Amino acid sequence: MKTSTDELLVFVTVIDSGSMTAAAEKLQQTVSGVSRALSRLEHKLDTALVRRTTRRLDLTDEGELFLARARLILAAMEDAEASVKQRQERPSGRLRVDAASPFMLHCVAPHMTAFSARYPEIELALSSNERTVDLLEQKVDLALRIGVLQDSTLHARLLGTSRVRIIASPAYLAQHGEPRTPEALHQHRLIGFTAPEHLNRWPLRDGAQTSLKIKPGITASSGETLRQLALAGWGIARLADFMIAADIRAGRLVSLFDSVLLEERQPVNAVYYQSAALAGRVQCFLDFLAERVEL
């Protein structure tokens, strides 16, 4: 083997950081040391991995290929080291969890004090993304995803499903009236998603169709933004129970069309790579969520 793991780490860190200066700071090395390590790696491989300009670093085609393999190698080494250190009786170490903002805010964050009390040796790192993240690229151990999963090499565990409802605030309904039929929605202000487009089809019959395509007056990428808009009285929205059930119970939001709403449930899955080192931490985290979270 020509290359060392230190050189692989320097290469990946330079790309992820965007500059040698930022990489040097992250690795606690000198800029010249990082530059030499990268040059040494390219010399060993007899190819240029990075195009250097005064303003930026760009990967060559060979660099793109090598980066993907380097990430896998570093992840495997981290996994091997963690496997040796893991104590099954007391799960410990870092667990990096990613979820869409609404799920993180309503179903994860409120329970983390209790989780840390039960598993004090697990260090949590929580992140929120509205898009589907690449677990290896973003260095995420476990992602919680809402909706139907796409084909994937990831291991998945279904945590449950959450009923979709159509809701509005009492203030909006007092000002604009309550729509009595699906067709009447076209006369109201509707709140929709920027993407994906299928989220702007609501579970109401529209003639022969089993869903009603809406034309939103305002759109947002996050379900939590839609919720806040609905709470503020902007209009009518379609959201899952896991983020609005408490609002409905408290009277902050009103559920519409309950008698004619078609049954639609959003699956909630946890996805992760199979890993001996992570198995204990992932398992206890998922068991804890399944015990605590109401979908």
Rank of each mutant, 00 (worst) to 15 (best):
R52V: 04
T3G: 03
L190F: 10
M243G: 10
V254P: 03
H198L: 00
R71F: 04
A80E: 14
A237L: 08
H43Y: 11
E7V: 09
L278C: 09
E62Y: 05
F66W: 14
S162P: 02
V10Y: 10
T53H: 08
L190T: 04
T13Q: 03
A171R: 15
F288S: 02
P170Y: 15
E42S: 05
L95S: 01
R189F: 14
G18L: 09
L231Y: 11
V268W: 00
Q150R: 13
E62I: 02
F66K: 12
S4Q: 07
L278M: 14
G233I: 06
I166D: 04
F115D: 00
R51F: 02
R51G: 01
G280C: 13
L45A: 10
H186E: 03
R238A: 10
H186N: 04
V148D: 09
L253C: 05
G147A: 12
L65R: 12
A156M: 05
R87F: 12
D61W: 06
S259T: 12
I146V: 11
L159V: 06
V293T: 03
L49R: 07
L67C: 09
R55K: 13
L27D: 07
K85D: 13
L229W: 03
F285Y: 01
V31C: 03
C107H: 01
G233T: 03
I15D: 01
G251E: 04
A277V: 07
K215S: 13
R189Y: 05
S92Q: 06
H43Q: 13
L239A: 11
T21A: 10
D79P: 13
T194M: 05
R227N: 03
R69A: 13
L159R: 05
A24F: 04
D61G: 12
D46Y: 08
R265A: 12
D79F: 02
K213G: 08
A232N: 12
V31D: 10
L231T: 05
R40D: 14
L136I: 07
R55C: 03
A174P: 10
L126Q: 12
G217P: 06
F242W: 10
G233K: 07
A75R: 15
E183L: 12
G177W: 12
F242D: 02
R227S: 05
H176P: 06
E7A: 14
L159P: 00
P120N: 10
E137D: 11
H176M: 14
A100R: 00
L124F: 01
M77C: 11
S32G: 02
A171I: 15
Q28G: 07
K85M: 13
R40A: 12
T60H: 08
I191K: 01
D79A: 11
W202M: 00
R201W: 00
H155T: 09
L185M: 08
F11M: 08
V260P: 06
V293R: 00
